Simulated scan of single mutants.
Amino acid sequence: MSDQQQEFHWRRIVLKVGSALIAPDNNGCSSRYLLGIAEFIIKCRMRGVQVVLVSSGSVAAGAHAFDNSKERSIAVKKAMAAKGQMDMMASWDRLFDFPIAQLLLTQGDLQIHERYHSIRETAFELLNNDVLPVVNENDAVTSDEQKVGDNDNLSAMIAAAVDADCLIICSDVNGLYTDNPNTNPHAELVKRVEKIDQRIFDMAGGPDSAVGTGGMRTKLEAAEKATSNGILTYIVNGLNTASFNQLFEGKNPGTEFVPFKQPLDDRIHWITHTSKAKGEVIVKNDVEDKSDGSQLNFDHTDIVNVVGEFATGDTILVRTEKGKKLAKAASQHSSCMLNLIVRDDIDESAIENDDNENTIIEENSLAILENK
């Protein structure tokens, strides 16, 4: 085996394919770009690399079956997703001589930690039995509240859930550019990103594709999620088969995002990047000054306001009066109880807890948010 081949050493990868590759003309599924992607998946499996496929495109794949002369309501788009999901799975199934399985998820499935672990178990059973999991958001039934919103971020959540080594996001652009290459001929491809900060996000601009729901920003959000979990991430041009050949040669065909050397703890990563905050606790501005960078030191006397409705154990966002986001954590109390506390409508002894000095949030489920 050559040195270049030895660089392709991943044990498990998540491959995200966008709508522009599934249904490039919004006229049903097309194998135009899927053949090269399928060949890459087959080669990975032949080399002993497990693959999880996150496939967008159900709405775009089903659009041709509906009257496009009328404005498309949310209900129509959900119906398109229901029709297109069948077509999309059939298209993938035709390209492989091994079994595939469908996993349709919503944010609600990822939000509850027990269900999150159930997804992990199902995915691992499929992989261990050489079945290719094909994951998509369940657009046909999900509500706005339950949506992840885009499959870029979903792919990063799945990559974390299945303990992937690498996340490959296939797009219709070569990667991250210093500016929009469609409008700026001097824009340069960024080959390697050591740290995703505001400067990197500023390069993203708006959506790059007329077909998908995501743009470069959602891909950067996905890369941020994945790299913080120690997962090497690429954004590559899925329109070009050469991208996959270069990956096999140990070369970088697009933009490479370097993973954290010290990944976040699994539960803290889930709190930070997967679990959506059900509500907010607004605290005094000086709470930030009292925190030590790893803990958030405040009690009920520091709470200024409680926003939203949440139950005990739900994920909440803690932010200051000025709006700075300090942390996400599991709440020790419901929003109803905390509102009573803030209004002094309950005896302080009712919230005392001798076993836990911090009675507002769970210390073992605290994710400090830096520079937010």
Rank of each mutant, 00 (worst) to 15 (best):
F310S: 07
K78R: 15
V131F: 14
L232H: 09
S349F: 11
I37C: 09
L366A: 07
I100E: 03
I74H: 02
Q111W: 06
F248N: 04
S349H: 11
F66T: 01
K290S: 09
E352H: 08
R72S: 13
C170W: 03
A140S: 15
I168P: 00
D67H: 01
R94S: 12
H9C: 12
G149Q: 08
H333W: 15
L326T: 10
S31M: 13
F298V: 03
K324M: 12
L317Y: 02
K147T: 13
G254M: 07
S19R: 05
F201E: 15
F260Y: 13
V306Y: 02
H333V: 02
L34W: 06
N182A: 13
E71N: 03
G250F: 07
N358Q: 12
S143T: 15
P99V: 04
K147Y: 03
N353R: 11
S58Y: 05
E188T: 08
K325D: 12
N356P: 00
Q5S: 14
S56K: 01
S118M: 08
Q4H: 12
K251E: 15
K276H: 07
K328Y: 12
D347G: 01
I168Y: 09
K325A: 12
T255E: 05
A75N: 01
D299V: 01
L340V: 00
D130K: 15
I271N: 02
I360F: 05
S73N: 01
V236F: 01
H113F: 14
S31F: 11
L296V: 13
D265E: 15
V76I: 14
D292H: 08
F201G: 00
S334T: 10
I196D: 04
L95I: 07
S19Q: 10
N184F: 09
A204W: 04
Q4G: 00
P263H: 09
Y33C: 00
E188K: 15
S30G: 04
H273D: 10
M88A: 02
K191R: 15
A164C: 07
V281E: 08
R72E: 12
G108M: 09
N371K: 13
N27C: 12
T227R: 04
D150F: 00
C44P: 01
S56V: 04
G212E: 06
S155N: 07
A75H: 01
T255V: 09
L34E: 12
I351V: 15
K195L: 10
S365Y: 05
F201N: 01
E121A: 13
S334F: 08
